[in-house]
Design a protein around this nucleic acid. Structure first.
Length: 353
DNA sequence: CAATCGTGGCC
DNA sequence: TGGCCAAGATT
């Protein structure tokens, strides 16, 4: 197909999205922030986080100067928390090594923490008009269908072939606006027409050429991810309550919920009671409603247990470099707390206190 | 290089 | 209900 890019640019200008919060700007900071938040995360989920984040950190200098714990709190609920740490590190790198201005080349952008090949291309094309292709889930789906690419796109061999194909489709001699429309068009086509379930092939600019449409294989392309059985883990969580405050514990920087504040955990009930005693309790714990949380690669059964203290010292929020803190339930917003733990604690506020 | 890393929407 | 996966990067 010789006019792939021309058709896409024309389609995007007529039928694409033009009013998302991170569009209609060339500010690399705003574009970068949106691209990081949008990694493996849907637009509707990102929008409120993006607004909240910009209000607190309007530019890269403000973000670089913010405490990392504040960044984690702003990110809490979005998931993939390494993104938040890398976001903070990236802002500091831009300030310290690039004079506060994002570099304009794909190569330099991709050296920054949290920015890979696709995100670098998105930033470079949107902010600087660079001729570089993205390759996200949308593009993989569109290319697999239009060109009939077989094989799971997460497999290295298939992905490499797709990078080469995507590069070959880039427009030549395109203006900055055309470059932006092209990159946005790749995303818009995949997000609005060439969707996973029921693609709207009648409105697609490639309908007559698309291998999947012509052969009726929309359901088989792209090739599905190989199925894997997800293991189940089980953990006991301690809701240690003192007045209207609970004890939170900071999780290690890597691993699940890395760097967030969560409830103290143990591998079984006896170990949890022992932890409650270590915090000053009498060892008595009572069961709360269990909950299950499903991650991408495992399922977590959570057994919450309530223990009471009456020392009156828990009324204050204790911060600093400590890895434990008493936090009043009304102050949870200023802590990065995992979504299911947040739900548990929010439910506690209504039923028990 | 395959595994790891969250959460919520959709059907 | 549960399977699937979204504007992927990192190790």
């Amino acid at each position: 197909m010789s006019d792939f890019s021309a058709r896409l640019i024309a389609w995007q200008r007529q039928h694409g999205r033009h009013d998302l919060p991170w569009q209609n700007t060339r500010d690399p900071y705003r574009i970068w922030l949106s691209e990081i938040m949008l990694q493996q995360t849907q637009v509707s989920t990102v929008i409120p986080y993006y607004a909240k984040f910009l209000a607190r950190c309007p530019d890269v200098a403000a973000l670089a100067a913010a405490p990392v714990d504040d960044v984690m709190a702003l990110w809490a609920g979005l998931g993939y928390y390494t993104r938040a740490r890398n976001l903070h590190r990236c802002a500091q790198t831009v300030v310290e090594r690039h004079g506060g201005a994002f570099p304009a080349s794909v190569e330099e952008l991709a050296e920054l923490p949290g920015i890979g090949r696709s995100t670098a291309a998105a930033i470079a094309s949107f902010a600087f008009g660079a001729r570089a292709t993205i390759l996200d889930g949308n593009v993989k789906r569109v290319l697999a269908r239009v060109f009939g690419v077989e094989g799971f796109t997460g497999e290295k061999k298939v992905e490499n072939a797709m990078w080469t194909l995507a590069e070959s489709l880039l427009p030549l001699n395109a203006s900055d606006d055309e470059v932006s429309a092209y990159t946005q068009g790749l995303m818009d086509l995949g997000a609005t027409l060439c969707v996973r379930g029921k693609p709207d092939c009648l409105r697609c600019p490639y309908a007559v050429d698309c291998v999947a449409n012509v052969t009726g294989r929309q359901r088989e392309l792209p090739t599905a991810r190989p199925k894997k059985t997800v293991p189940t883990r089980r953990t006991w969580m301690l809701v240690l309550r003192d007045g209207n405050a609970v004890m939170l514990e900071k999780r290690p920087p890597s691993g699940i919920w890395g760097g967030l504040w969560s409830l103290p955990e143990a591998a079984d009930e006896a170990a949890l009671a022992e932890r409650a005693r270590a915090f000053g309790g009498d060892g008595a714990v009572s069961p709360l409603a269990p909950l299950t949380h499903v991650f991408t690669h495992f399922k977590l059964d959570i057994e919450p247990r309530l223990a009471e203290l009456d020392s009156k010292v828990g009324a204050l929020t204790v911060l600093g470099d400590a890895d434990t803190a008493w936090v009043t339930l009304s102050d949870l917003d200023s802590f990065g707390v995992p979504a299911p733990v947040r739900k548990l604690l929010d439910g506690l506020q209504g039923s028990l206190i």
